[in-house]
Amino acid sequence: MRTRSGQRASVAALVAALALGVAGCVPPEEPEATPPPGDGGNAVEQLSQLTVASAGSMKGYSRDRFPHWRDTGKNCDVRDSILQRDGKDVKLSGCNVVGGRWESVYDGRSATDPSDVDIDHTVPLANAWRSGANEWDNAKRGDFANDTTRPQLIAVSASSNRAKGDQDPSQWKPANRSYWCQYAKDWVTVKHHWRLTVTTAEKAGLTDMLEGC
């Protein structure tokens, strides 16, 4: 039977062992809390961090100042990569996409011919130019135009892409209202990463869309 002094000694020894990490590994840090999917919380925070400024001039703008599409293999490019990523039952000739099925999240239209599908820049190149990209060099603009890491490139119907043009969310929104939340989050993610500015009207449009998340 242990004496009280023996028990105290045992407790002290255990405490010392734990302090030195002898009794086991250091507990992992708690993961950072993230907003539940679809709530738009992180996007709201990122939007608040964007600089609000008037749209810049289009002087000097050309799509050629944003070199795309970059090669991603023999006789194929970023466009093929996005078509393959976003399509179903995709058919290839080498690495070129020659068939498949695509549903445009902007308007719900379906296509089976890749020539009927456009690869949209979530933040249009001209909009990026007016919000800071005019100060970049062509190499950085090329990185932006071919960004497959952020939600900057998406396969959509040609008609919706051309209706959108270079308009921001205060001027154009997808016909598919159920996609507004995701569209706003993607727009903010891209602008936040590339440190592009937003206009007052653009920020208001994004805020309105994020409230529906």
Rank of each mutant, 00 (worst) to 15 (best):
A12M: 09
M1S: 12
L92H: 03
K203H: 08
D113H: 07
T112K: 09
V15H: 12
T72I: 05
W194N: 01
R4V: 12
T207R: 07
S93L: 08
G205C: 06
S10F: 10
G94K: 05
V78E: 01
T51G: 02
V198L: 07
V78F: 01
G100P: 02
S110C: 07
M209T: 00
A133G: 07
V44Y: 00
G142S: 15
V117L: 11
A175Y: 00
G99T: 07
L14K: 11
Q46E: 14
T148A: 10
E211D: 14
V11F: 04
P169L: 08
E202R: 02
T199W: 01
T148L: 09
Q84N: 14
D113A: 08
A12G: 11
L210W: 04
K164T: 11
W102Y: 07
Y183V: 01
M209R: 08
L210Q: 06
P174H: 05
M58E: 09
L47I: 05
L92S: 06
G40K: 07
K185S: 11
S104L: 06
A9T: 14
T149D: 13
R101N: 14
L14V: 13
E103F: 01
S110A: 07
M1A: 15
S178F: 01
C95Y: 05
A19H: 07
E202N: 05
G41A: 12
D143I: 00
N176R: 11
T197F: 03
P28M: 06
S104C: 15
H121S: 09
V52I: 15
D107L: 03
L83H: 07
V123W: 00
L20V: 10
V190S: 05
V190G: 02
S5K: 15
D113N: 14
Q46I: 00
W136M: 05
P36N: 12
P37R: 13
L50D: 06
G108L: 05
L92R: 09
K59T: 15
Q171E: 15
S159H: 11
K164R: 14
G87C: 10
P151M: 08
L153Q: 07
K74V: 12
R162H: 15
D168F: 00
C181H: 05
